[in-house]
Design a protein around this nucleic acid. Sequence first.
DNA 1: TTCAATCGCTACAGTCGATGTATCAATACA
DNA 2: TGTATTGATACATCGACTGTAGCGATTGAA
Lengths: 214, 214
Amino acid sequence: MHYCSLTSKVAHMVEKLGLRERKKQRTRQALIEAAVRLFDDRGYDQVTVAEIADAAEVSPRTFFLHFQSKEDVLLANADVRVDLALRAITECGADEPLSEVLVRAMEQMIANAWDGDLSSGLAALRARLAASVPALQARLLQRYLTAQGELAQALQRAFPARLDTITASALVGAMVGAVSASALTALERGDGPDEVRNAMRQAMALVAQSVTDG
Amino acid sequence: MHYCSLTSKVAHMVEKLGLRERKKQRTRQALIEAAVRLFDDRGYDQVTVAEIADAAEVSPRTFFLHFQSKEDVLLANADVRVDLALRAITECGADEPLSEVLVRAMEQMIANAWDGDLSSGLAALRARLAASVPALQARLLQRYLTAQGELAQALQRAFPARLDTITASALVGAMVGAVSASALTALERGDGPDEVRNAMRQAMALVAQSVTDG
DNA sequence: TTCAATCGCTACAGTCGATGTATCAATACA
DNA sequence: TGTATTGATACATCGACTGTAGCGATTGAA
């Protein structure tokens, strides 16, 4: 059910939270769900923040107490994936091949996207909107960039002997750039989820082979 | 005929333009210069479009007849570099190694940036602002993405036998991703122009070796 | 239980980026 | 010369976003 998939990330933390915080999370979820539904129905540009707030039964001002911008409501909870990839890097053995670590980190993100947003259809909506709404596309790219930065930093710290800062950035940049570019191309071509995933894997393999560890 | 739309970017054809068009270019230039000066003086967010228009002695509405957004005034003429890279791809021999073609395309862009914006200090301003102003950063990334798409398409058409669409996207994505990520890291580290350029070259080489043409 | 501090939320006013429309005046062109 | 084109303007409007003051519900301590 929709309720489950949307609240699953919060569910296990709810126990320890006070009433005030629980109410806050409830309005946040209400805003997200209202936004997703409205965007899906009428398109991103045809929905105003005021309408989202109205559908969630809060004041327009409240929207911006929960999200920095109209775009951000669609990118909520996206940090989870980055954290997964980060952990895959920080928790690897110091003697593992770079390519394996990088591939595993990327696999983490893809896999999480798979059974998270993809099953709920949220990923599809986001992809569709990001392809057609410039403002959203820009914001999404920005997220990628900051994630890249974090990954590069983590990688460099995990392999200080083998990687300088620039090489780490280049490596992560190449990986993320290749995977997202191929995914986007596949999406634009009208490929289904499975084909998109294959495209991402293909891109990953292409870059991984350049990290043959010298 | 396609060349026309690509090359007619104002630069050389100025001579033969009518009075009306020349006036138009003059106001456009005035807007750009006013914007750059004001941004440099007081920072991006502290300057309104109305003020830019005022400094250029035109109406605020006129600004948006020349630029789609406030951000775009800083990215004016950036397409020239993409065109250079595109030509480097379309004009290559069909039997050249992929890595060489890609590297040459990237070199074109870097070199052009070098003696164009870099010497005028515009690149420095843009880098500084892009690093500190999210809206600008996002818009810049978006430009990169569309450029990537064009490059990938050109590459795939130049080597239809050796590259499928996905691989072409992945390749270009890896290259652009690596180069821009390393450049950004170098910039953030406070590196000077020469070091930034070296970082870009280093990233390029890293990716190029993965395209050993199989 | 009570009191005070905290904090999510609201109402209101305002700034600014961006767009549609009607119009003027200079240029282009027949 | 007369007509069409078009860059620029004035005016109105929308919508994203912010600052501020204040209300009322939770919270934690006395």
